[in-house]
Design a binder for these strands. Structure first.
Lengths: 199, 199
DNA sequence: TATATTTGCTAACAGTGTTAGGTAAATTCA
DNA sequence: TGAATTTACCTAACACTGTTAGCAAATATA
């Protein structure tokens, strides 16, 4: 009997509509302002209907996280296929990853838990003090003959990003390696960075 | 007349109590569950009193952000002072930065907007697919004679962290450089990483 | 002492996620 | 077909958020 099938299909349909609608709202107004009630109103159903399809709000977000990683994987796979040389492959992956992040900010922010309440941080006296301290040291390492503002700024950003990247990934996940390995990763990354500055 | 002064002092005091109490709550239960009402209850004042000291909740968070950056700066400055060699200085800064992040998770998360709603992400099929794709390429670059699981895992994490660090810093700030410079930073960082793999 | 100011409260508004309980329609079974 | 059962859906509530208007009491000033 096709009745059960039709019901399943209809249920699937509403689920898809919920996701589509939610996604549109996120693109328009960001994750912070996505609410179950607004979704319900947009799809012209009452609130509890949404709970027939998702256990809670987090389940909806999780669905998008999964979508995000799937999309990213597809793009990375395709990008890398075009090359034979592993160095070229890796560069292509990096490029594609970067593009994905900025062309799909909504996905990326969700996937990596970016964008808490308060902080779209600006240049305050506090952050500038840290920047100056670090940048002066990096300039010394680059060497007086090769220092220029572009280069210096670039290397500072790289240094900081390596550190912050390592930390934020470590901080946001459970399934992780030991503290010793983590420390090794930093040491390795930073020593590599310093070597690269000097050549 | 000292009355006005005493009043100012008392006002300052309540402000400090609000911050202290809020900080304790955050250490116990994280940022997500910090609320104005809970603070009010804890300090045994009514809710609107808090608004006499802070414009809104975000202002409280901003205060902590500032504190965080000040503390971080102090630690970095001290750490770097112990060395003369700039390479040693920079290493000390990286080490100290790392320690700060994990000994003061609450600060760090707030300072860099980490920890949105849903994601303490785990190893899903989607993320593992990406990991395998990337790690295989990195292994090739390391060279068959030098590959081992520690090394491979380490380099994978470094690669990903560099990328994610660059992206997440770029994504969370307004006062930023042009897209071209950003792309330069990635290219530079990744080519440095690759060079480092091969030597 | 009378007036003005500050202080702190209650109570509300508007929003959030989530769920209990009831009704009416659709489907199944006798 | 008619009764029983399941399903779909909604209203209304609960327990929370941040924020603010308006009022009463304590304090300081004239």
């Amino acid at each position: 009997m096709g009745i059960a099938e039709r019901r399943l299909r209809q249920k699937e349909e509403i689920r898809a509509i919920i996701l589509d609608t939610a996604w549109e709202m996120v693109k328009k107004e960001g994750w912070q302002s996505l609410s179950i009630r607004k979704i319900a109103e947009a799809i012209e159903y009452s609130v509890p209907v949404i709970y027939d399809h998702f256990e809670n709000k987090e389940a909806i977000l999780l669905e998008f996280t999964k979508q995000g990683f799937q999309l990213l994987f597809k793009k990375l796979e395709k990008a890398q296929e075009k090359y034979d040389d592993p160095a070229a492959k890796l560069t292509a992956i990096a490029d594609t990853y970067w593009d994905f992040a900025f062309k799909n900010k909504e996905y990326y922010q969700l996937m990596f838990g970016l964008g808490m309440a308060c902080c779209e941080f600006e240049a305050t006296p506090e952050t500038m003090a840290i920047r100056k301290l670090t940048q002066d040291i990096i300039n010394e390492l680059i060497g007086k003959n090769k220092v220029n503002s572009t280069n210096s700024c670039l290397k500072y950003h790289t240094f900081w990003s390596v550190l912050h990247g390592l930390i934020s990934i470590k901080m946001m996940r459970k399934w992780d390696v030991t503290d010793e390995v983590n420390k090794l990763v930093v040491k390795d990354a930073i020593s590599g960075f310093i070597k690269n500055l000097q050549n």
